[in-house]
Amino acid sequence: MTTPVLNVSNLRKSFGEFTAVDDVSFNIMPGEILGLLGPNGAGKTTTMHMLLGLITPTSGSIRMFGMELATHREQILQQVNFSSTYISMPLALTVEENLWVVARLYGLPDIRRRVDDIVKKLEMEEFRQKITRKLSSGQMTRLTLAKAFLTEPKILFLDEPTASLDPDIAHKIRALLKEERRSSGLSILYTSHNMREMEEMSDRIIFLQRGKIVAEGTAQEIVTRFGQADLEDVFLKIARDSRL
């Protein structure tokens, strides 16, 4: 049996009285794409931020590559990266300068080749010299994806990565993610509010609601278990039940 690259057990985060993430446990295997699904405020982003060491958990443990995040932060974060539609990069630098800074931050060798590669892969040639301030929101998303790919992570955390992309680019990004997973065994934790994308991308889905895992399995398994036609209907059922 292969060992998981990421192991989360009994993770909990409270902000004062309010519990945003409640006793969450899961694994991610090498090369696996795990979808994190749930209504607004379910705790998806909070979970990801804990995995990135940006938020300190109230209790529970996070292990990656067999190491505890709390004690091996540098070694772990060197091998992971993240992207989200909602993050930004320094606006006064050009796209290429931003990528160079990231490459240096992670101490990458052979920076010029890597930057060229990633720019080509994400079709960023026509704006690579542009000041980041002048990018459209979709171009910005591509830049933040490029910074995540640039460091060749073993685990990628993607928080709604395709939310602002046009269908053509979104399709290409999904193809790229699947290709990276196939060729280099990249593991991905993914959130999205696009149910079709979730079904297409995820090997396995975890359904979060008010910080708790309420369902887990392949998209097909979850759909069958809830006796619905598709994932969207499952989502609507769970989300509406919880709002009653």
Binding site: G53, E74, F82, I87, S88
Partner: peptide, 14 residues
């Protein structure tokens, strides 16, 4: 201002 703190502190930077 650049909203870059998250990029920095999710990297190995101490």
């Amino acid at each position: 201002w650049a909203r870059n703190l998250m990029n920095l502190f999710a990297s190995p930077l101490t």
